[in-house]
């Protein structure tokens, strides 16, 4: 059996693969949102690490920073590898409000806005969501195993759970 190869998807980045040994990972996601998409027939999977709700310009190092741009870009990369949009199993994780301290004029509500815009972008693509683990006040690490499409979520002080 081949050892797993972990690809870390940093803030604003996206990654796709069709290697069964690949594990796509977003480490320590707070207000950001990890969008996981997996085509169980072709085995192609992708993950986008969304940072902000909406915007126009991305950069080469952060092609996935805005929700409205990240979702179409993720779908395009998955399709290029042979994945089929109509078969995608989509899971959405993150969007926490890490602090509820008063006096920040909604700064920490950015997670709520990120989730809202990710859902809107997915709806625009006529994609349904198989599972979600969003909101709350804790950060999460998200791993998607392309051998099965399984998504595992873990927070500090909690047991890992399958989504």
């Amino acid at each position: 059996m081949q050892d797993d190869v972990e690809i870390i998807v940093g803030m604003g980045e996206l990654a796709v693969s069709k290697q069964p040994s690949t594990v796509l990972t977003c480490l320590g996601v707070g207000s950001c949102v990890a969008v996981c998409a997996f085509d169980p027939v072709s085995g192609v999977g992708g993950m986008a690490h969304v940072v902000l709700p909406c915007g126009e310009k991305t950069t080469a190092t952060a092609p996935s920073k805005y929700a409205n741009i990240a979702i179409p870009a993720l779908l395009e990369e998955i399709t290029k590898l042979g994945g089929d949009k109509s078969r995608l199993v989509i899971k959405v994780v993150g969007g926490a409000r890490i602090s509820t301290a008063p006096g920040f004029d909604g700064t920490f509500k950015i997670g709520d806005k990120n989730v809202e815009q990710v859902l809107a972008a997915l709806e625009k693509e006529k994609l349904t969501i198989a599972a979600m683990d969003t909101g709350g006040e804790k950060g999460r690490t998200v791993r998607m195993y392309l051998a099965t499409g399984k998504v595992i979520v873990q927070s500090v002080g909690a047991r890992p759970k399958e989504l």
């Binding site: 480490l27 707070g30 902000l52 920073k65 890490i98 602090s99 950015i110 997670g111």
Partner: peptide, 20 residues
Amino acid sequence: AVMVDMAGAILDVPLSHVLE
């Protein structure tokens, strides 16, 4: 605001502004 969590999670807010 005092936060105790994974470094990545609590850096999200300041870093999201950097990425802008």
